[in-house]
Amino acid sequence: MSAVNNPFTLIGAVVLGAVREMGEITLFLLSALRQMLRVSGGAAGQFARQCSFVGVESLPIILLTAFFTGGVLALQSFNGLSGGPLVNTQLGRLVALSMLRELGPVLAGLMLASRVGAAMAAELGTMRVTEQIDALVTLAANPVRYLVIPRVLATLLMLPLLVILANVMGIFGGYVVATKVLSVPAMQYMDSTYGAISGEDMTMALVKAAVFGLLVGLMATYHGFKADGGAAGVGQATTRAVVYGAVSILVADYFITAIFV
C-alpha cells in the first residue's frame, strides 16, 4: 500500500499539519503580544483607522442581523411555548438570555470574521505578495507592530462594544415582534426581560466578545501574513482567515460557556 493511500499516513499527516498550524498561530500571537509592549505613537493612526473600519463600519450589518435574530427568537419561542400561559412571563426572558449568552456574541463574531477578517487577510495578503511587508522591514519598521497590533487591538476592543449594541438591538427586535405581531403585553415582556438579565450574563457576553474579537483579528492577520503565490494565494489566505475565524469562534464559545455554566 503506498504512503498516499495508507489511511494511517493520511491521518498522521492531517494531525501533524493541524498541530504545526496551531503552534505557528500561537507563536504568531506571542510575537504580537511581545510587540504590543513596544508599540509607539506611530501605530496610533493605524489603530484609529482600524477601529473605525471594525467598529463603526460594521455597525449597520451587525445591528440588522441582531434585530432580525431577536425577532426570529421571539417567533420561535412563542411557537415553542405553544402560545400558552408562560408566553407573557417567559418570552422576554428567553429572547434576552439567548441573545446575551449565545447569539449576540456568536453572530456578531461570525459577521466580523466574514466582513472584517476577510478584508484584513486580503489586504495583508496583497501587501505580502507585492513585497510591501518586506518594504516595511527595509524601512526599519516592524511589520507586526505596524500592521498586526492595530488590527488585533481593534477587533479585540471593538467586538465587545458591537456585542453590547447587538444585544440591545436583538432584545428590541424580540420586543417588536412579541408586542406588535404576537400581541404579548409590552409591560410583561419588559418585566420578563429585566428580570432575566444578570451581571453574570453580561460578563459572559463581554468575555466571549473579547475572545472572539481576538480570534478574528489573529486569524485574519496570521493568514494574511502567510499568504504567498500571487492572487490565488491571497484568495486562499482570505478563505482560511474566514473559515479558521468562524470555526475558532464556535470552539471557543463551547469552552467559555462550559466555564461559566
Binding site: 505613537g41 506611530g42 501587501m127 513585497e131 510591501q132 527595509t138
Partner: peptide
C-alpha cells in the same frame, strides 16, 4: 535603501507619504 521589482509602494498612502515613510516614523 531598496528599490523593489514592482516598487512595493504602500497602496494606502499618498506618494509623498510613501517617500517620507521613514521620516514620519521618526516623528
Amino acid at each position: 535603501g531598496m528599490l523593489f521589482q514592482n516598487a512595493a509602494l504602500f497602496d494606502s498612502m499618498s506618494v509623498w507619504e510613501n517617500v517620507a515613510f521613514v521620516l514620519l516614523q521618526r516623528k
